[in-house]
């Protein structure tokens, strides 16, 4: 599969990235290279091979169940757009 210039512009719009025609063309080429790579990999016969849980043969490190964090809400909320009664305010969401 390959992407058209319109596909690239649509993806850019969805990602809220401003892009001009020249950039779109360059990006189209780069993205299509990635699709080519995927196509190459998909050509390999993997039947009979168990899928790996992770690319490396390593497992998760665990931490002890102890409280190590302190209250830093004042610092975090100093950069929040809107705060009231220690709550972060966001545009109303009704479900």
């Amino acid at each position: 599969m390959s992407l058209s210039p319109d596909d690239v512009k649509r993806i850019a719009r969805l990602a809220r990235i401003e892009i001009d025609d020249v950039q779109a063309q360059a990006t189209q080429g780069q993205l299509n290279t990635i699709f080519d790579l995927i196509a190459t990999m998909q050509a390999v016969d993997t039947s009979g091979i168990a899928p790996m849980a992770h690319a490396q043969e390593v497992t998760q490190r665990l931490r002890a169940d102890i409280v190590t964090e302190t209250d830093r809400h004042a610092a975090f909320q100093a950069v929040a757009p809107a705060v009231e009664n220690d709550l972060y305010l966001v545009p109303k969401v009704i479900e």
Binding site: V90, P91, K92
Partner: peptide, 12 residues
């Protein structure tokens, strides 16, 4: 918290 914060929602 959907109580009214000037038409906004509070998040804890």
């Amino acid at each position: 918290l959907h109580e009214d914060f000037h038409g906004m929602t509070g998040i804890d």
